[in-house]
Design a protein around this nucleic acid. Structure first.
Lengths: 224, 224
DNA sequence: CGGTTGTATGACAGTTGCGTGACAAAACCG
DNA sequence: CGGTTTTGTCACGCAACTGTCATACAACCG
């Protein structure tokens, strides 16, 4: 069930929102200040955050920025102001949607659903990609096999990242040349060689690859 | 650069939107009907679609549903009507956002940016075509029968994809030669052979094919 | 029923695509 | 500058794939 956090200082409005959302089938929580909201979201993250712009203390824009800095939670602004400036500023700060009070609860609910559909499809890029026993940390520039670090060269690493980023998808040699080497065209066998070298390092049995597999005539792909 | 498709029947409004968006740095295209929009998006997909609700012929809601069925492109409704009913219906149909005309271009632009931020990272799930127990994933270069992967060769795979893409329709041997092999003309028996090999792999009883059926004198088709 | 046409299938040889080891050029690094 | 690592090129061999053919089989038609 979707878990919504409402950050709104006006008690009556907050209560009304909470009740209405609960009615729509959401699990709800509410707080009156940005500070509380940030804390709550950090300690027990909701799936979606509704935030007012005019808040005492830390204002709504700053609240959005900080929420966004922490994680990728969908943020909807619910504000009385319908000034284009505010809307643009809020969206630029990191909000996903902006609705003007008073808002029909049905519309709000539909917007939340649309947003969640979108957000669900994009789980924030994990710092570590895992493929069975194989772990890749694009940030750290590190590859581990059964926990042990595996020394890979820069090209091998980029190749692996490219494949990992499109896990499960076939990438043709041309695509890989394009993305890893930047060649517009070139010898496709080059890819083979590097895939081979990579296999020696990351596959338990390089002859029978489990993750970095060949699709004859199509290209290579990385599977779980 | 973001590539926007505008579907709007009112020439003046469409033109105004296109010019304004171009000014904001988007690459733009515009069409006047839902049908054109769907075709355009299918043939040369834009990154984002703006659609009006009141369109001649196929209406906006249906247009949204069909766009959404095809792919995961961000869809923003730009409509003159601010009725909650319409908003909810459009979002339920698959739209990501709904703005009411007249809209400040800056707001629209900010909403497009917010939406694209969300949508970009989406590792959209691999599309899978299903025919009973048979699953075909063009992107993964994979065919599965009762969940088990079936090794098919490149030609077999292309042939299968071609048939799957036109599921239910008969494709003549000439058409298949044309599309799979690129031959303008050639030995039609070649198709038979490959169909046969494919049947051995994907049919439970290759003698009595359930999915990949022959239409004597016409060609082959793939059915559910 | 026999003739005719269209389809299925097995075998086979030529071809293609891929994995691999060897090696040279290039980049890197004290 | 000299050694070391990394990168790209090449050639060879194996395994898999492709297209052709011949033959057997099935469907259609009068």
């Amino acid at each position: 069930m979707t878990d919504v956090l409402v950050i709104e200082d006006d008690d009556r409005i907050r209560l009304a929102l909470l009740l209405a959302l609960e009615d729509e089938g959401y699990r709800v929580r509410g707080v009156a200040t940005a500070e509380e909201g940030l804390l709550t979201q950090r300690r027990e993250p909701a799936d979606t955050v509704l935030v007012d712009l005019m808040l005492p203390g830390l204002d709504g824009f700053e609240c959005i920025r900080r929420l966004r800095r922490d994680d990728d939670v969908p943020i909807v602004v619910v504000s009385a102001r319908d000034d284009t400036h505010d809307i643009v500023a809020a969206l630029e700060a990191g909000a996903d949607d902006y609705v003007v009070k008073p808002v029909a609860i049905k519309e709000l609910s539909a917007r939340l659903r649309a947003l969640r559909r979108r957000a669900r499809a994009a789980p924030d890029p994990l710092p570590v990609l895992t493929f069975g026993q194989l772990e890749i940390s694009p940030d750290a520039g590190e590859v581990r096999l059964t926990g042990r670090p595996v020394p890979v060269t820069r090209t091998e690493f980029r190749l692996l990242c490219e494949l990992a980023e499109h896990a499960g998808r076939v990438l043709s040699r041309q695509q890989l040349l394009q993305r890893v080497w930047g060649y517009d065209t070139g010898d496709e066998r080059l890819v083979d060689v590097h895939v081979g070298r990579l296999r020696q390092k990351i596959e338990e049995d390089p002859g029978n690859p489990r993750h970095l597999v060949t699709l004859r005539g199509l290209g290579y792909k990385l599977t779980r």
